[in-house]
């Protein structure tokens, strides 16, 4: 299928429109849920960290440090990608699957159009913008942690900000973006595959979306392990 994505391309003007539409559906449409989850989970991470620091010898800036590390290294890139496997992945599978069930893909093929390129290529290109979403998630996650720490009285603003800056390695952000790009490819291709090659009727569209979500999550988790091993160990 991947070979078909890149051969016999759709006309540039039409493809541009499709890409903008998919950016709207897959990227901009996900910002709300990403913002909501990131802010609150960032807050929970900082509260959990603060509540587990009982030893007075441990500096209070550890709350900011732990929040930053958790959000940048794992929460934003990996767990947001898994959440998006549910939102974006099932949208991709069900929209392509519905086109399969209602013979719209056959209609494209009969017209002599490369349906794989027409349907999947714009999704791959738009998902390349996922690092922007993850960047947004990192910012809001840390902001949520800051808000929870200050308003919960767990630490001072100065301590939290000092913790965020403590031992900061820009490479960690690069590492997060590298794995985000790889997850973006997984998020675009696995659900597309399950939608494109599905068989049956409306009920099977739902089943295909579920299977696509499970496989996307599994592949992301496994890849996360290997990427972390290669880039951080």
């Amino acid at each position: 299928m991947l070979r078909l994505v890149f051969i016999k391309p759709t006309k540039g003007k039409v493809m541009r429109k499709l890409i903008f539409k998919d950016i709207q559906d897959l990227i901009i449409g996900s910002l709300g849920i990403v913002a909501f989850l990131s802010f609150f989970v960032g807050g929970v991470v900082s509260i959990q960290t603060a509540l587990n620091i009982e030893n007075p010898l441990i500096p209070k800036n550890l709350v900011g440090f732990a929040t930053r590390q958790s959000v940048i290294l794992e929460f934003a890139p990996t767990f947001m990608s898994i959440i998006l496997a549910g939102k974006v992945g099932s949208f991709i599978t069900s929209s392509i699957g519905t086109m399969r069930v209602t013979e719209q893909i056959d209609a494209l093929e009969v017209m002599g159009i490369n349906s794989v390129n027409y349907l999947v290529f714009p999704k791959i290109i738009s998902m390349l913008l996922l690092p922007i979403v993850i960047n947004f998630s990192m910012f809001l996650g840390i902001l949520g942690g800051y808000a929870a720490t200050i308003y919960g009285g767990f630490s001072s603003s100065a301590d939290f900000i000092e913790g965020i800056q403590l031992d900061f390695r820009p490479y960690h952000v690069v590492y997060a973006f590298i794995k985000t790009l790889i997850f973006a490819m997984v998020l675009a291709t696995i659900p597309s595959y399950h939608g494109y090659y599905m068989k049956g009727g409306a009920l099977e569209v739902g089943k295909a979306a579920t299977v696509a979500f499970v496989w996307t999550s599994v592949v992301i988790i496994v890849l996360n392990y290997f990427i972390t091993q290669m880039l951080l160990a």
């Binding site: 719209q104 056959d106 209609a107 009969v110």
Partner: peptide
Amino acid sequence: RREMGMVFQGSALF
């Protein structure tokens, strides 16, 4: 195929 037209059973409109 570009010389062919097809009317599908379910219309298959986009």
